[in-house]
Design a binder for these strands. Structure first.
Lengths: 331, 331
DNA sequence: CGCTTAACTGTAATCGTTTACAGTTGCGAT
DNA sequence: ATCGCAACTGTAAACGATTACAGTTAAGCG
């Protein structure tokens, strides 16, 4: 309610002095005391929007991703948060719950005054988002695959390499009939994981069978459960790679309910190496895509860019790591 | 970069007309076309901070909680998000990663211009937060227990009743030596769950033994694992209630690694009924504290308050529900 | 072709800050 | 006491939008 002018009047000084006291610029002890007293008396708090307008900074960084239910993004957020907590910037999260329009609108609003920088990790490969990213007139870091022709700071993980590791590991542990429970093809990871899987299978000298890829329609445990329930003949497979740990967990639940032994009959590899991997029974072998580390790096990139607006854009690649647990033990 | 004045000049109209076109107020087709053309040419986006300053609204609601790693809060966020998505307000999240100071500062900044309303679910019972809440000059909804003397909109769940249900269920299924793996006593849920447990045990006609409460120092699976590992003599117990599903998951992991049968030797009840409950092996009986529903209600309360600033504050109570699964089957 | 009225447009004030600039004050040195 | 200089303070102009109000244009109608 009270504004800086009211405080100035109450303290018997000018608005400039009030502002200076608040922002820690030089002020006589006497002046400062009166201003602080007036602030306390009026319960004054500066208006952030006005400040942001004037100084052209909000001291906020916005992290945006699509799927709050996905633990990989939560880990990413942890990474960003840790890195930012030692800076002057606050982290705000914006997670779109429905349409691409919504997310585009959200980002634009953020971009024009509510945030100084944006870290965005879009799962859906909609070209409107791509356009938006290149149109955004503010520091942006993209986590995930950089679309062609977009020149922004970027951190991504070589998930193909991760899938190759998983395939290799399965083959080394004696599996020959490997399937993929994939995420939706409307998402970037869905598209990329399928391609990577096909490539890895061929690279290992097997022939790729389209029927070995089963599409789930979300990245959830329910979808994994449903995917497994649709398989008529489990004897065609002795291993599955699942596009994330959630899908793997759902699949394993179906297996345990239906007398399919893991890893006895079927080996399972998850992706993301989230907390759940070591809690499942059996514990889940999973490809760690280093979400938390990617978050950290993204935050570093944005801070660096904020401090140094004209530098060339950087693209950073993180290496995945296969974490071996019980679900892929030898038969 | 471009501001409204530049657009006005480019289009050969006044800034007022530009503003009206943007905000959908009446404009001649001719005028509108020229303005839109100018906007496109200059790649103009209105500055949110300036708009927020002038109209005294940001069209943002801020949801704040402490622990992003806790799936219960994620569920809560889902509830808030769903409810808000049909309103004109956007949801932003602010999750504190370290000190109370940080969260206080964050909320204040939000409060003065960056958000029109605040939904806050503090886990730590620091009185500075309480003070802050009552001092905040904006619509606030508190999810969780309302401190004495604070008169704000509130939604809370009767977790004592939930714990009583769990105790009752355990007794009915033949358990007599019930323990509690509690969360840290520095958190509100930690304090309250312990008290509720003691009360429920006594209400059931058992005598309460202090040694039956084991304190974990976080709400994580690791803490649950560690808590179980510290128990010397499992024969003293035939059931445990865990202060959340995460703790339960960790405890079950220890059990499975150490030949303790669940539910054979020990029955386990979790709290929160998160996704993981049905993915664990055995599946976990859990007290559903309706986090998602509480989020929805909180969002409704804040929208209602925003539409109706002078109404008396409302306190809403949600009833918990026990979801019975395998981990508490009869011996 | 005037007149009335509705529809649109422009001017300028305003929101609550910050900050350049000029003006004032206080203090030590002479 | 006076001067010089540093340290502080106040005035007023921004920042980029919205909007009341008054002024203009267009349209409808006899």
């Amino acid at each position: 309610m009270a504004n800086i002018e009211a405080v100035a009047k109450q303290a018997g000084v000018s608005v400039a002095s009030v502002s200076r006291v608040i922002n820690g610029t030089a002020a006589r002890a006497d002046t400062e005391a009166r201003v602080r007293k007036a602030i306390a008396e009026l319960d004054y708090q500066p208006n952030s929007a006005a400040r942001a307008l004037k100084v052209r900074q909000s001291e906020q960084i916005c992290l945006s991703f699509d799927d709050l239910a996905n633990p990989a993004y939560i880990a990413m957020t942890r990474g960003v948060g840790r890195e930012l907590s030692s800076s002057k910037y606050r982290l705000i999260l914006s997670s779109a719950f429905s349409s691409v329009e919504e997310i585009v609108k959200h980002l634009q609003t953020m971009g024009r005054g509510f945030a100084d920088g944006l870290i965005i990790s879009p799962i859906y490969s909609d070209e409107r988002i791509t356009k938006l990213i290149s149109a955004l007139q503010m520091p942006v870091v993209l986590i995930g695959n950089l679309p062609d022709g977009v020149d922004v700071d970027n951190v991504h993980v070589d998930s193909s390499a991760g899938i190759a590791m998983a395939v290799e590991h399965l083959i080394q542990t004696g599996r020959t009939k490997i399937g993929l429970i994939n995420g939706p093809l409307t998402t970037k990871p869905g598209v990329r994981r399928k391609a990577a899987f096909e490539k890895a299978i061929k690279a290992a000298g097997f022939k790729f069978d389209k029927a070995s890829v089963i599409q789930a329609n979300t990245f959830s445990p329910e979808a994994g459960y449903f995917a497994f329930s649709e398989i008529n003949d489990f004897s065609k497979f002795d291993a599955f790679i699942c596009a994330n740990d959630q899908l793997a967990a759902g699949a394993m639940k179906f297996a345990s309910e239906n007398g399919i032994s893991i890893p006895g009959d079927i080996a399972i590899v998850g992706i993301d190496n989230t907390d759940i991997a070591s809690l499942l029974h059996p514990t889940l072998t999973s490809v760690d895509l280093k979400a938390e580390e990617r978050g950290e790096i993204a935050a570093q990139l944005i801070l660096d860019r904020l401090a140094n607006p004209d530098r060339a854009s950087k693209q950073i690649t993180v290496e995945p790591k296969l974490v071996i647990r019980e679900s892929t033990a030898k038969k």
